[in-house]
């Protein structure tokens, strides 16, 4: 979509005005600074998704819409998790983080901060594997998506 102020609120306003769900939404400028790219995770019946795509296409700031589920795609999300750094959790946390290819990116006397990337469901699984008592806070970017191979979304 056009990289213009107001574009984001047009999209989010559309979702709330028409009662569509937003599970996550990420947006940032692209290699072409006049354009931003947004990934929205939503849910609904086929008819609802069809309407969402059509309604998004109607927005003047939206250049193109691609429903990634119509073909093969890659999904990634980044999460930062801050956990308690007590001996009780330490080994377990390191072991699980290894399995999920998480990296410890910050250490303090009381905390570890781990960075994990993957599909949203992988991040969910990672969180579930940790002892919930040990989690201090989490922050997630929301999912990013890209078509595989020749599936390209360009203006």
């Amino acid at each position: 979509m056009e990289n213009e102020s107001g574009a984001l609120s047009r999209v989010s306003g559309l979702f709330s005005a028409r009662g569509y769900n937003i599970e996550s939404l990420t947006v940032a400028p692209t290699e072409d600074p006049t354009l931003s790219r947004m990934t929205i995770v939503t849910n609904g019946s086929d008819a609802v998704i069809e309407q969402i795509v059509k309604q998004l296409n109607k927005l003047l700031d939206v250049v193109r819409v691609l429903d990634l589920n119509d073909g093969k795609y890659i999904e990634r999300e980044l999460m930062l998790v801050k956990v308690k750094a007590s001996n009780q959790y330490q080994d377990e946390m390191k072991r699980i983080s290894d399995i999920f290819r998480g990296r410890i990116i910050d250490v303090s006397d009381n905390t570890f901060t781990i960075e994990v990337t993957g599909s949203s469901s992988k991040l969910d699984a990672y969180l579930e594997s940790l002892d919930s008592e040990s989690i201090i806070e989490t922050v997630r970017t929301g999912a990013l998506g890209l078509g595989r191979g020749d599936r390209i979304l360009k203006a």
Partner: peptide
């Protein structure tokens, strides 16, 4: 003329 009117 509006695709969103169709099958709404």
């Amino acid at each position: 003329i509006d695709p969103a009117s169709i099958s709404k």
